[in-house]
Structure formats: structure tokens, C-alpha cells
Amino acid sequence: MSLRTSYKARRIALRIFMLLILAIFIVWTVTPIYIIVSNSFRKTIEMKVMPPKFIFEPTFTHYEKILTLDRFGVFFRNSIIISCFSTFLCIMLGSLAAYGLKLFKSKIGQRISNVMLLGKMVPSIALLIPLFIMMNRVHLTGTYAAPILTNCCLNLPFVTWLMVGFMHDIPDELIESASLSGCSRVSIFGKIIFPLLKPAIASAVILVMQSSWNELMFSLQLTNLNTYPLTVGIARYVGAVSVDWGKSSAAATITMAPIIIIGFFLQKYLVSGMTAGAVKG
């Protein structure tokens, strides 16, 4: 009897210890985000008061300043345009290419998509320098097309590979029976495959969206004052020059809030997109 209670006590102690470590991990994860978000609502004088007060009177002056004086409203619009178009284009082309790869009878499709994944190894800087010269020559720098095309290209290998993996799971019998009942290969894609791909598309949307929303290096050089996305706005103005904590906290909050909110709602798909390749192997 006493043996069992001591075993039980040890189990409970272990549970508490485990929860404690996870709690530390949560605090470690949340604190930096909390600091920046709460600072964006604090008055400048209160910001460097330690320990920080949890309850304070919020102020919106920092937001007013960066949205009106520092053109962050324009950057916000640019970020939306660039990331939405990149995501749309990338997923359209990626799923079409994946279907094309599936139509090859042999296993070659899977292999091509694996080779394409090698594209992830190319460092952005190696593409940026020649692209900068090339895009200057065709007068694409400063347009929305430049970052949209590069974001699309950077994500295409992964999206295609993801879609190939998901299409692999669609049973061949389904496609065969459709083609026996007279469906063409094009209408099979529209009527059967595309609807079944919805979860994969949701995963791709959140992954491509976050990568194009957060992309910095290409946009630094390929856009101009009228087409800067938020990340460049932060790097150019707030990060480099200003030491105004309030303004840069507000800018950082504006930059991370939308994508965190979208990610929260697409949570399930975000996780399945990230784990798809890893767990299937």
C-alpha cells in the first residue's frame, strides 16, 4: 500500500516538474512578444521603467505617428498586395505543376519534385545580386512584380513538393473511375483533385503567406519608396536610424499582428503543412 502511494506521489511530482518546464517555455516564448506589443501602447517615459507595469494607461500616439508621418499605412497596403498576389500565383502554378507531375506514369514525378526541393539550398543573396542587375535592365525594380515573382519562385519548389505529396494520397481508383465515366484529364483536376486538395491548399496558403509577408532581403533592393513592404519599412527607418522605442514597437506590432492572427485561424493547416514532409518522410 505505502509502495503504491509513494509511486503515485512520484508520478505527480514528475507531472508537476514537466508542467513547470513547459510553463517556463511558454513564458520564454510569450515575453518578447508581450514586451513589444505592450510598449507600443505605453507612453515613451514609462517604457524604460523597470520592472514594467502590467496595468497602464494605453496611448495610441505611436500608431498615429508611424501611420501618418512614416508612411506605414502605404507599406501596409504594399505588404498586403505583395503577399496576396505571391501566394495566389504560387499556389495556382504549384498545384498545376504537381498535377502535371502526377500525370507522368512512372515515379519520375516524385523525383523531379525532390530535385526541385534543392532550390531551397540556394541562398537568397546569390539570387539577389544577378536578379537586381537583370530586373534593373528590364525596368522591373520598384514595381510590385519584382517581389511577387521572386517570392513566388522561392516558394514554388516547396509548394509543388507539398502538393505532390498530398496528391500521392489520392487513390488512383478514384481518378480511373472518373476517366472511365468520360472525364477528361483537365476536368478531373477541376472536379476531383482540386476539391480534395483543400487542406493542402490551406497549408500552402499560410506557409507562403508568412514567408512572403516576412521576406526582407529581396524587397530591400527590388522595391522603392512607393512599393516598400512593412519589413523594409522597419529595416530602413525604425531599425537603422530611430531609437524611438514607441514608434518601432508600434511598427513591429503592425507587422507581426496580421500574420499571427491569420496563423491562429489556420493553425491546424500550419501545423499539418510543416509536419507533412517530416512525418511522411
Binding site: 514586451i35 508568412q210 516576412n214 518601432s248 513591429a252 500574420i259 493553425q267
Partner: peptide, 30 residues
């Protein structure tokens, strides 16, 4: 409960991560 909290940093732009940590490492910071 853990998952939505823990996925947040993944979605934050690396340039913002740099900015956040700049404030954390500030001599008068947290």
C-alpha cells in the same frame, strides 16, 4: 493550449525578431 501560443514566434518576421531582441538586450531593457 500549448500549440497556438508556441507557434507565434514562427510567424513573426525575422527582421522583427531582430528588433525585439535589440530591445531585450538593451542595457536598460528587461
Amino acid at each position: 493550449i500549448f500549440r497556438p501560443i508556441v507557434t507565434m514566434p514562427l510567424l513573426v518576421s525575422p527582421v522583427v525578431v531582430g528588433l525585439i531582441w535589440r530591445y531585450i538586450y538593451d542595457p536598460r531593457g528587461i
